Computed example of a mutant assay.
Amino acid sequence: MRLPVLAASALISVALAVPLAAPAFATPVTHAPVASATSHGPRSLDIAAMQEALDAITAAGAPGVIAEVRDAHAGVWNGSSGTASLERPQKLRVGGLFRAGSVTKTFTATTVLQLVAEKKVSLDAPIERYLPGLVPNGKKITVRQLLNHRSGLASYTDTLWPGGFGEMYASRFKSWTPQQLVAESAAHKPYFAPGTNGHYSNTNFVLLGMLIEKVTGNNAEREMTKRILKPLGLHHSYFSGDTIRIHGPHARGYMHLDGPDSAYTDFTDTNLSWASTAGTLVSTTHDLNSFFKALIGGKLLPARLLGQMKAMQSLDDGSPYGLGLSRKDDPAYGTVYGHIGAATAFNTYRFTTADNSQQVTFSVNTPADSVKMRNAVNDALTALLSADRRA
């Protein structure tokens, strides 16, 4: 069974055809006050449209959502809708922490590309050079193919919980090693020969974390903290490893274990070691916007490597994917770069405009597991990225 965790696509698509049940709670929707909304010159942020977009997500059944929109011309807006807890309804903190899921992949990719810049890793070298004997067919799978999901390696998350979300929940405190995750992948047939197609696989980014450790001699999460989190001042972000609880103010996270018509189950406290360097980041909207602004602004990588990171090829689902980075194109806002992350009970949407003038991050404390929810999330992305209006 393939579980929709650690989001597999750069696009927000309506992939389910199931109706949405009434929300499993009876508390009124509340709104956090607008934290800041400033304007400079002839432009301003359309706060009403942005708030309406967040409200539509909670109206579609999500317990809550927080967002930060930054615009070089019009300022910064922080907003929220819904509740931080279904058991004890309370306002969401717009600066609260959440599990960022596969947004982690861009941090892992950036670290690998920094090692490439330092000539410690070669993009087109086989992974066998760095991790001998670990990867089936490792002599034919390059570091680049791991970064852009063209290795063909089976994703261990497709098969780790054959009993579905119920089994995942029952084993939520279990610890996994990267070696166990790679072994789970190796027990299954590859999707295709390396380089012949593209398919999103979390196994690729677990291996990249192991590569970081092998080359630097340091734990991958500590290495990424040293190279990215500390220099950028991302003081509220950390890699959770096998830590069960989120450290700091945060909303509770919920899942429908038996489909969108079932009641919500609190899935906040969980061991995400199974996500490894593919998805253990805990962060805030502010920190993620800061990271992506620095990345796309050229502060973390040489121009030649940032260019390669942004060079997209289509995965087998049609979505564009570069080296740990995805792209979305829409007439309403043009081209944006970023990543989507789904880690059990939190979904994160994080994009930066091509000219780096606007950053948008919003986090929902439940997966988008219905057509209505996915439509609301997609509409919110459009509204938030189109929020810079001429006065």
Results as ranks from 00 to 15, higher is better:
F98H: 00
L181R: 02
L381S: 02
Q51H: 07
G152H: 00
D71A: 04
F291N: 07
V18R: 04
Q51W: 07
A343P: 05
L385Q: 00
A22C: 01
T38C: 04
M373G: 01
T142H: 06
M1K: 11
A220F: 03
N347S: 13
T285P: 04
P33V: 01
H256Y: 09
T268A: 04
A84F: 08
D388A: 05
D329L: 00
G318N: 06
M312S: 11
L301R: 06
L207E: 06
L305N: 07
N78I: 07
A294R: 10
N148D: 15
Q313W: 10
K226A: 09
M168L: 15
A183V: 08
I127H: 01
T104W: 08
Y349N: 01
W274N: 06
S44L: 10
A24G: 08
G133C: 09
T111C: 00
T27M: 13
Y200H: 06
V121R: 00
T27Q: 14
P331G: 07
T216G: 10
F362C: 03
P249A: 06
R389Q: 08
G259L: 00
Q313R: 11
G133L: 05
F165M: 13
Y169R: 13
L16I: 04
A278Q: 05
S185M: 09
A183P: 14
F173V: 05
T38A: 12
G209Q: 05
D71K: 01
P231A: 08
G164L: 13
P63H: 00
H256V: 08
A343G: 06
Q114N: 12
A303F: 09
S363L: 10
N289K: 10
L229R: 01
T104C: 11
G96Y: 04
A380H: 03
G334S: 06
H235N: 02
T157K: 02
T361I: 07
S80L: 04
R245L: 15
P302W: 15
T58E: 08
S185V: 10
Y254I: 04
Y337H: 11
I12L: 12
D261S: 13
A35I: 14
N148I: 13
T277Q: 11
Q313S: 10
A53P: 06
S171R: 15
G75Q: 07
V5L: 07
N204Q: 11
E213W: 11
A220L: 03
V206F: 14
A391S: 11
V371N: 03
A59S: 13
G41Q: 14
V65H: 01
T27A: 15
D242H: 03
K293A: 12
H247M: 06
M210N: 08
K310D: 08
D46S: 09
D242V: 15
S81M: 06
L45I: 12
T216K: 06
A74P: 05
G195Y: 02
H149E: 09
A187N: 15
A345V: 01
L315Y: 02
Y264F: 15
T177F: 15
A380T: 13
G298S: 14
V112Y: 13
A303Y: 12
Y254T: 06
V206L: 14
G324D: 11
N375W: 01
G209S: 11
Y254G: 07
S155E: 02
S9V: 00
R227E: 01
V371H: 01
Y264D: 02
M224L: 06
M309N: 10
V377D: 01
Y321P: 05
P126G: 01
